[in-house]
Nucleic acid binder design. Sequence first.
DNA 1: CTGACTCAGGAGTAT
DNA 2: ACTCCTGAGTCAGCC
Length: 757
Amino acid sequence: MVVPSLQCMDSLSSDELKANGSEVVASSAGRGKSPKSEGKEEGPGGGKREKEKEKEKEKAKKGGEPECCSPRPPGTQRRCSARIQTKQRAEKELLVRRRVELLDNGDGVTSTGKRRNVGGRGKSGGESAGKEGPEVEESEVEAVGGAEIVGISVEPASAGSGVQRESQVAAGGDNVAPMVEKSDFAKVKETLRLFNKHYLHFVQEEEKRCNKEKAENSKGSQKPKSKSKSKEQQKGSKQSKTNSKKGNSTGDTKKLAMRPDLKAITKMLETNGVLHPKKRFGNIPGINVGHQFYSRAEMVVVGFHSHWLNGIDYMGQAYRKEYSNYTFPVAVAIVLSGMYEDDQDNADDVVYTGQGGHNLTGDKRQIRDQVLERGNLALKNCIDQNVPVRVIRGHESRTSYCGKVYTYDGLYKVVTYWAEKGISGYTVFKFRLRRMPGQPMLTTNQVQFVYGRVPNSVSEIRGLVCKDITGGEEAIPIPATNLVDDPPVPPSGFTYIKTIQVSKNIILPAASTGCKCRGGCIDPRICLCATLNGSDFPYVQRDGGRLIEAKDVVYECGPNCGCGPDCVNRVSQRGIKYRLEVFRAPRKGWAVRSWDFIPSGAPVCEYIGILNRAEDMDNASENNFIFDIDCLQTMRGLGGRERRSRDASSETVDHMGKHDDQKSEIPEYCIDAGSVGNIARFINHSCEPNLFVQCVLSSHQDIKLARVVLFAADNIPPLQELTYDYGYALDSVFGPDGKVKRMPCYCGAADCRKRLF
DNA sequence: CTGACTCAGGAGTAT
DNA sequence: ACTCCTGAGTCAGCC
């Protein structure tokens, strides 16, 4: 990288500044970033609190600056003047004191502390706390830390479903972790993220196994891996199956997961990670009509359809005790995937073929008569007892990485059933289902995405204001649309670049020696770069490379490595591969979305701009596009960026050996995308983001100069706005006058903090 | 593109 | 404790 020529901040015209300013709330809004996570400091347990207090004092002594990280809020000084710093310190100390006082007052203490632990910026009370008072108050409470404790101990008696209460009891009944109830939506999201993490882990395991086999094959005789091989495998797997059943194992032929999705389900079950392990009638909280699943396994882990294989999910006799007035089995959900030759799907009116008698392999036709039992009986019982059934439709979808998308289409009533001779001449049971009224319109008759239709070409785009904001820089053009302004204007005031420009007064460290792998890095035990990542590659190969989970730092292969550009450990270096669009959003300014499906863990883009010394940017008070490189801020739980724990940071220090923990607490460098930058400068903040920030080192190993790359935190359907958490703590931003600055948040998330800062 | 094959939890049944 | 049921997902092999 490196382009010495530099556009100075001052070169921004006043118009441009104004333009940026107006966007503030929106796009850049957050760019400013958070002086430190207040929340984190308000740590749990008394001892820790003491420590924090001490730390605070220590910092004050040192005249420590606020630890800024990433984007800076508009109109504020990223690094504050000494006067403001003093004021901030004083305020913090006051906070600490107040907190201690509150804690000393006794009750509620425990709950408070623990709850903060949920993560600083804490998803605010949702149904419970959220409705207690006006939003502002809620924020205040949040900001003041201790005070909120009092509010939180309130029993959410009036709020939430029984389930919520139940889980609350489960979580906090033992006085251990009375947490603020997250929105159901957030819980679903969290569960899916955990599932994806497990999934990618098992994908990696599987890839390792394949690589090993390949290596062994190429080492040994060139016996083509052919039928004989697969037969051997078959034998092996059969053996292992019987072995496992018998409970002993010969070990040698044990086959690893060919189905990482299923392995991930097992893992989720083992770790009690499944969201609603008990089956239930009707809607599942947090999953609205139109929700999209990207595999059958996803439905299992959120408790939406409890088997990855069966079409009909039903409650069996085991539920008799709990619901004594019902006759079981009773169906709760069905998947329409067009597997049955006799299915008819007319959106609101469905004729569903019962289960059984199906040729599981081969031509997938009926080969036996169906019987009125199991799922079939369960559907019949639904008619008699008027129980609605969740209907999920499976669609082939080229845009989905897995080739299939499952959409929740709402509750249906089973109206009638009958038996008839099917197309193949065998008896099949048919069930007529009718969609219940009062639900959102069906969006999935033919397809696909609740957000709208993806354009096929630039000419189809409504409100096009710029065909390619990159001016040909990126391999894939990025159009801009504006259906908000009148007259519509394109984004302006910046020059598009796709690689970092380095300020004149910065000398990048020399490139590290790199690994000696040839062609591509395969064996993580041999590859030096993999060693830095804890002896494993951070990515899997699947889908063009996906990051398995957020890490403090990702070490990629660099210019001096022996591997080629296709190496699995260079995933973030391949540029933008999705068709992105910049669009004008009401109230939010410019925003970014993708026309393509983005699988979780896939790199979306790097934050590009001018690499500058942070101290040199002190005067750029109106620049909203500054991203402080602070690798001590990292992802914790994907929900946002959070101050890394002491332990974690020391681990990393061990790793890297030479990094001075103390020093790196203050970001020395920043990326300024004010005048020049790439698509990342348009990405908005959200309190429930679908991207996360990941520091990546590839050409050198200086953590202070890490690259900042945005990765997908979830499976992101086409046309969903891309967002990441700017990570501000509330009341953490001060204006030039020393007063707390506030910025409303318009992200619209269920757990929105209402204020960006 | 097609066919072959595996996968694993839950329901139901036998002991 | 055991068997059976179920169809998505994967991959080799074919054209």
